[in-house]
Design a protein around this nucleic acid. Structure first.
Lengths: 128, 128
DNA sequence: GCACGCTATTCTATTGATGTCAATAGGTTA
DNA sequence: TAACCTATTGACATCAATAGAATAGCGTGC
């Protein structure tokens, strides 16, 4: 089964279960920044929140990896929370000042992308 | 140089020349369909039109490969045009019925993506 | 008539991004 | 103590993007 490749959204025969598209994948990172801006949180929770947001079911590894990479960039900062957990210790991520800047930058980018999409949609719907 | 990676839009330091983002890359395919719906065309022209659209400078390989892959899916159909060219023979692509369907499917997908982006932008701008 | 530049397409190699799977591990409940 | 949920990490395979060069016809200037 192709990851998404060309035609990911055509499906073909069997009714596909929810698959995320390249478009939604590109949104994981800004979505995480937005969520972390609202409150510091840990991967497992963020995973669920992404799902609620509508960014399709993302594999946990992807979210954790993205968080680690964002930490390497200095956008977020993590601390272990050993107490009051219902499981193993968890890593709490919080936004840094750089992360806030990154979010602003992302917002400009998303704005441009949205405009482009709107333009495409319009142009693709005009009667030839 | 990383393709885009985390932080592709942060640049850091020197003012980056136009780099395309994962978001714009994801738009190549629907953009091609939209353009081909308007008129049959060949890779070289489509390349320039993508640029005009705002889908950043795409490497020719990507466009040609995408076109071939779309042909393999039956979305487009190509014929060699040997006459009236200012160069070597060129491959004219035109949309098929399946391609039109694919475009419709894409449009639904783009609509969803745009809504998601709007939602993110709003949520990312609310005062905490 | 040939060297150069533009149009036009294809192929190969490399790297980077993504998806999947498995491993680890603490806590809770039956 | 076994099963299950929370929670995170690492390794590996695969796929897609990019760069770069090869191929090739045509037009222009010299």
């Amino acid at each position: 089964m192709p990851r998404h490749g060309r035609g990911w959204m055509m499906g073909g025969g069997p009714p596909w279960q929810q698959r995320h598209t390249p478009l939604t994948v590109a949104l994981i990172e800004p979505a995480l920044l937005v969520l972390l801006r609202e409150r510091a949180s840990h991967g497992y929770t963020l995973l669920a929140e992404l799902d609620k947001l509508g960014v399709g079911a993302i594999h946990p590894s992807v979210v954790y990896r993205t968080l680690r990479e964002m930490e390497a960039l200095g956008w977020v900062q993590s601390d272990w929370e050993t107490s009051q957990t219902q499981g193993p210790p968890r890593r709490i991520y919080q936004l840094t000042a750089q992360g806030t800047e990154a979010l602003e930058s992302w917002k400009r980018e998303l704005g441009r992308a949205r405009d482009l999409v709107s333009q495409l949609l319009e142009r693709g719907s005009k009667s030839t």
